[in-house]
Design a protein around this nucleic acid. Structure first.
Lengths: 214, 214
DNA sequence: TCCTGGTGAGTAACTACTCACTCACCGAAC
DNA sequence: GTTCGGTGAGTGAGTAGTTACTCACCAGGA
């Protein structure tokens, strides 16, 4: 990926190389999984020798771990959502969460990496999942719980409700990014539909224990 | 797995062996993926030699394909759901679908196999997905569309609504079976919650374009 | 002269897959 | 009842190629 530094030197610095290897390896691991990717392929894609890869990372697993460990940042979204939450703008809160997941330029690498690491049972998978996803559930469940206390939402299990909503989004991405199901609506339409469906289900004013229409 | 036939003979018949190899290989592929599973391991788990595995299946991929192709039956559920659908018992329709997915003895093998095959990009993955899952969406979307025409459901995109509901279920299984998130409710409670949440969101009588409370 | 970035040429173990071969069984000829 | 040949189940010992990983060594800038 990195072949030469812009100006004087032909050699890349250690950090540059390391970052380059991580980036190229990440896309390969995301595409083919851990066991499906060879160190030879990684080296070739990173335009260097296999030996250099092992100079930077003692083992293939260590490289994989470095990739998972690197993909942690996420909190920036929550601070923006927090604003909407303070104003009790339910629709905005859920729309922001949804459109952060479902949008045109979303990177499928993370999702594939997450799924592969969980399926293949990598030791860092759990931490990766926690940083990438769990924070959403916990935060959202907290918000839902509060809105229930305030009488705005029906009395439901907050964690289950949070998972329902995030489940719609995760499943949407799964269908399109992993199973290649063609989209028949724009991302914005989908977001609006999911949010409307969910909010109308949870907001107070609808009979909670309604049975089927007779 | 199969070591000897019940009575006279010590040798297993060709069909018995083949079925045994498929079954053991399926659980290995589900656990470790295609590239993560070796033919040696398969042979050992099936209590036979590697050579015999290749007597039955010309290549490792052919064995994998045979496994995916074998896991097709599913229609029996839809016929039962059909009854509830005829009676327009919405709650029962959705509860049956949900509890078919979320139940105590559910086999995690299929889900893992499905995910692995999609991630690893196996050629039969798409067919597998179609047989295992797509039939649900199409059927459910059809039912939802009909209920909208009858005025029982709000005017939403039927396919998107169907995916929302199945998404809740799929995500629920994903969290517990793949990411090992501990359950904090019984499966029955979860099913009830999901169904209630979804039905209250989609059933007519709730203001469709309600904005956030001011 | 070092030190850092970089590599070619390995290695032992493992991979999917092959082949020549044995063994158990069974129907039929004697 | 015994022998015999055919057949399908089953395998040990390979194969060539690939795997993750190592090491002695080189180039060039400070």
């Amino acid at each position: 990926m990195i072949k030469r530094r812009p100006k004087t030197s032909r050699k890349a610095s250690g950090q540059e190389r390391q970052a380059g290897i991580i980036a190229t390896a990440a896309s390969l691991f995301a595409a083919r999984g851990f066991t499906g990717t060879t160190t030879k392929e990684i080296a070739k894609a990173a335009c260097c020798s296999e030996a250099l890869v092992f100079k930077h990372f003692p083992t293939k697993r260590a490289l994989y771990a470095a990739i998972l460990a690197e993909k942690v940042p996420l909190t920036e979204l929550l601070t923006v959502v927090e604003d909407a939450a303070k104003k009790r703008d339910d629709r905005l809160v859920f729309t922001m969460l949804a459109s952060h997941r479902i949008r045109r330029g979303a990177d499928p690498t993370l999702l594939r990496l997450l799924l592969f690491s969980a399926l293949e049972g990598h030791e860092l998978s759990n931490m990766f999942f926690k940083n990438q996803h769990r924070v959403f559930y916990d935060y959202l469940a907290g918000y839902i719980e509060q809105r229930i206390r305030e009488g705005a939402f029906r009395r439901v299990d907050p964690l289950l409700a949070a998972r329902s909503f995030m489940g719609m989004l995760a499943h949407h991405r799964l269908l399109h990014e992993i199973f290649r199901v063609p989209a028949h609506r724009t991302p914005e339409d989908c977001v609006d539909s999911y949010v409307a469906l969910f909010l109308d289900g949870i907001q107070a004013g609808t009979p909670a224990a309604r049975k089927t229409r007779s």
